[in-house]
Amino acid sequence: MKKIIMEKEAGRFCENKDIAKKLREEIIEPTIREKEPVIIDFGNVSGATQSFIHALVSNVIREYRDQAFDNLLYKNACLEIQKIISIVYNYMQLD
């Protein structure tokens, strides 16, 4: 199991997609590939852009589907971030 403390990685407002991409490629994808859970902790993070969340998880959902849904765990996400994550989840399952 891996844990990402988002405040430490991307600050209190998550908008830098370079960081999202790095986290996805270096931590999230390899862990999900191994069918291990990843806890993404948004404690103390006030907001995030849709682009940031898209860069963080969209490709994991596309590539690993149920494996991703089962093992991607979001902790301490405020309602606003929860809604953005939900929007990305929804449109990644439209096809």
Binding site: K17, K21, R24, T49, Q50, S51, H54, A55, S58, N59, R62, V88, Y91, M92, L94, D95
Partner: peptide, 23 residues
Amino acid sequence: PGVTGTTLELGGTSENGGAGLFF
């Protein structure tokens, strides 16, 4: 929404969802 300059695929690429300006 859903249009990005990097792909025609639904959901965009791993980096672009095509939603920024629509939002």
